[in-house]
Design a protein around this nucleic acid. Structure first.
Lengths: 200, 200
DNA sequence: CGCACGGTTGAGCCTTATCAAACGTGGTGG
DNA sequence: CCACCACGTTTGATAAGGCTCAACCGTGCG
């Protein structure tokens, strides 16, 4: 059970909790690149590359396994099956970042927010942390806003608009998607980029 | 010498010319994920993954080498050196997309534009297609605008502002960075994410 | 109780999109 | 050679979107 600002230059598998990786901007703002949830690796690319181009920060208490880079590479090079799995993990992470870029660059904040909520639902469902329409998200709104590249104030107003339209409900930390069909329609959400495993 | 809309499901090494990979949005807009220039692979991730989540399109005439996925994987699995190189290529592409996301999500259009121009300079210089302050870019502005997630009109005005400030000059297809120090200052540009090779 | 933190709301301003039109240039066909 | 067209660039006016500043609310915790 760990809680700290910067899991240094190690590789981890995240079992429980939420973390974010981000870049700082000259004006003090930050852009969150990816949200790490249960089942995700942290620092996998850096393990193969030797250096990281972003910071990682725990957003909640975490439960992780630590794997030394040497051990990871050693084991991977002996098991084609594992190697293939790691490749798939890396590729999937890249696909998610690319979709994230598309979301931020191409959608206005309202559908952008909706798309983000749908992606979280999909990813959490995949690891058994929620259903297609309901999950727990313990992150404060300013973190989600930093992810979507808007101010927390504007993000908040968009959540309000989605709520007003009867599309979502947020209580405590529980997100509920009341009308997934409509949410998918306004975003053009297609979850295939999230994938289901190395085989498909 | 090829010119077509969609290099189908193959892997290519780009020797000459410019290509873009992009995603379409429900409203008809498109977000360009990455610009491919000389020295870049096209469809490398897809080769290992079996499927692509984006479209690729030639923006100019191209000179490419075609490599079948089977051949690529066969050769890679026999040469650790090549395997390491491909890994580095994948990781670098991801780093560039992440920086792209940071640029689009975190910067206003003016520094965003400047950052983009600086990145191109860096990448082109690395492959001998330009200097630190001068390179050729044959792409129309609406393509660059789709890359940065703004309208071509607004992008054009930002170019004008940079020109007016004496920071850049664009003539025909030649981009000239007249004041790199100032451009780097207003963007906080740090080219390390682009890297120099598998060794550092 | 009082404080810290996050969520919510309002007003005004700046940024960016949209619609519309003019301009330049290279290519094509008469 | 010139008329015309296609394409990309540039500019203007207006509207919409998003940011900033500021205040208020709710809740948990010391």
């Amino acid at each position: 059970m760990i809680r700290e600002s910067a899991p240094h230059s190690q590789t981890y598998v995240l079992h429980e909790g939420w973390a974010v990786s981000y870049k700082r901007l000259p004006d003090g703002n930050r852009q969150i690149i990816e949200m790490r949830i249960a089942g995700d690796f942290i620092g996998l690319k850096a393990a193969f590359l030797g250096a990281s181009d972003r910071h990682v920060e725990a957003a909640t208490d975490l439960v992780v396994s630590e794997i030394s880079k040497a051990k990871l590479i050693e084991v991977a090079s002996q098991s084609p099956r594992l190697m293939e799995f790691l490749f798939w993990k890396l590729a999937r992470d890249e696909a998610i970042v690319a979709e994230h870029l598309t979301n931020v660059g191409g959608r206005k904040t309202l559908p952008r927010t909706a798309h983000f909520l749908l992606e979280l639902a999909e990813r959490l469902r995949q690891v058994g942390k929620g259903t297609a329409t309901r999950y727990e998200c313990p992150l404060p709104q300013h973190l989600l806003a930093d992810t979507l590249g808007v101010t927390s104030i504007h993000f908040n107003r968009c959540l309000g608009e989605l709520r007003r339209r009867g599309l979502i409900r947020i209580e405590r930390n529980v997100v509920e998607l009341l009308d997934r069909a409509e949410l998918e329609r306004i975003t053009g959400f297609d979850p295939t980029y999230i994938g289901g495993g190395p085989d498909g």
